[in-house]
Design a protein around this nucleic acid. Sequence first.
DNA 1: TTTTGCACTCTCTATGTGAGAGTGCTAACT
DNA 2: AGTTAGCACTCTCACATAGAGAGTGCAAAA
Lengths: 345, 345
Amino acid sequence: MNPELHDRAQYLLKTLVERYIREGQPVGSRALARESGLDLSPATVRNVMADLEDMGLLRSPHTSAGRVPTARGYRLFVDTLLKIEPLEMTQVKDLEHRFSRVQNSATLLETASSLLSNITHLAGIVMLPRQDHATLRQVEYLPLSEHQVLAILVVNDREVQNRIIRTERQYTASELERAANYINSLCAGKDLYLVRETLLEELKSAREQMNMMMVAAIEMADKAFEQCPPSDDFLLAGQTNLMEYGELSDVEKLRQLFEAFNQKRDILHLLDQSLKASGVQIFIGEESGYEVLDDCSVVTSPYEAEGEVLGVLGVIGPTRMAYDRVIPIVDLTARLLGAALNKQH
Amino acid sequence: MNPELHDRAQYLLKTLVERYIREGQPVGSRALARESGLDLSPATVRNVMADLEDMGLLRSPHTSAGRVPTARGYRLFVDTLLKIEPLEMTQVKDLEHRFSRVQNSATLLETASSLLSNITHLAGIVMLPRQDHATLRQVEYLPLSEHQVLAILVVNDREVQNRIIRTERQYTASELERAANYINSLCAGKDLYLVRETLLEELKSAREQMNMMMVAAIEMADKAFEQCPPSDDFLLAGQTNLMEYGELSDVEKLRQLFEAFNQKRDILHLLDQSLKASGVQIFIGEESGYEVLDDCSVVTSPYEAEGEVLGVLGVIGPTRMAYDRVIPIVDLTARLLGAALNKQH
DNA sequence: TTTTGCACTCTCTATGTGAGAGTGCTAACT
DNA sequence: AGTTAGCACTCTCACATAGAGAGTGCAAAA
């Protein structure tokens, strides 16, 4: 097989994938011959297509229906044939604008996911910032009622969490203030998972010293952190967009896909894989390793603020998606979200 | 039309609805004659069915397909013919148990919605406790960074909300404490919507007195309440259950229904109507007034704690649902959720 | 009032048919 | 060699047709 032919085969694959993405119909030899612009007869194209099929890049839905790309075909297309359109400046500005006027960090994430879904007409997904590297900024206790204390944890300078703690006896405001000060001097600035270790150690020495105030303070703090969820979660927008694609419109398949979104587990695993990646990452069809996603592609990008990777965002849609548009959008959204979170600070 | 016949017609309507709910197929005269146990020929049953159709209680999907109930048919069935099965004691105990071991009030609501959806195999919905009658318990300010203050609002003794407020200058902890004390003495115990009025008035007199500390305190508080959302929201579980019912399995209809869930607006309006009702309320098909719900029924019940109605919960499913099972389940869940929220206190 | 009998309607499932699209293969052409 | 033309073949899709089955409505009989 000489290289010139190989080039031609690649070119034909490219135009086939492009056309299939555009039209959604299996592509036949004649249409491809015409569309390619190469001066070839359908018969020649058929030969090439047969080769591509042997290589596992194409397949026929049935004997006489033209060809569609396989996951491996899309992969080759995306990796080496795809020319990514740079986004138009107006679109970039528009996105920037929409991010700029959101203040709250929670709504920032929501904005990101709904923007992703609106612009791409796919499902947009944003993994919540992970907590495992969260550092405790400060703790505060407020008396709520006789047996309840409200613990407020300020984490990472940008996030606040509340826990309601049941206590054995009533505490006065000044007692609680002292307890909080004590915990703050002990733990402020530490990683959350370090905090709990510190607390345990301190609890031992406090018990030895018989310092009941300190014991109570620590036990309260421990109860607060105990409730700290691993925060494995994501936001999803535009699920319903997926119902409009013919290839997914089988109700049973859709049900399983939506079920997977609800379960969250598999999706989170997949997103986790992109955490370490440095830029846009693409999972095509079976590549993801999850059966429900067999007919879907997932395009992700990690987003970061203050130099640290916080999470992953992206879109989920049919394998037949406009990668050239989707990839830069996911990329830009990740950057903008990061920048917006930075400004938050 | 003599009363005996009327009774018979009602009885036949009842068995028809029961059978249709059970089987999901239009019921023909012969099947109904047999199932009714009345010693009638199919022809007689046909006459009765024709009458019922004239009355708008039944309709035929097409000329020779038997009959199915209309919304009005279901209505009559539910209002006067339905015998509600009391729940089995084991099931009651089981539900109680599941509620009993949840501590957090947010997860209580989630538990309720997922229980509803799991037990009924429909979509479970729980409206979040509404805030309009919320009374402010206390306000607390924490310094976060140079230009940011964290405001913590304790509302209704059981709920806590955070806002991050941008400030012109930096405030010390003691300044903030004094500001909070001031606001607390002013507003604690008041309704949220009263609070804002109070703040506005107070702001005027503070300005006159040129008391800059008070002005700053009030402005901060106002910014905090400004962000107070009306909290029009609900939790939804088991959307995917709805995909398994044939009558809804048209992808386009489903899309519109799910879209309505996302939009939330219409659904909230509907739920609002049940707030004032005292017990289980049922919207059948078109009765709801929302086109997307034409093929759905909604069974709701308000739930209350400490003698006050907090919100509404219920299920959404196809009109053909097992009302006799669903109604007591919704009823019980509302009671149990209320009881659990009470214990929370 | 109820039932019987009967013609009629409508759906559903098979079945068949022809057109259209596309393929694979072979043989001819460059 | 690589390319092309020709051709038989396959598969789907749209459409028509037919019969079975279910159920109806109506008129006449019980």
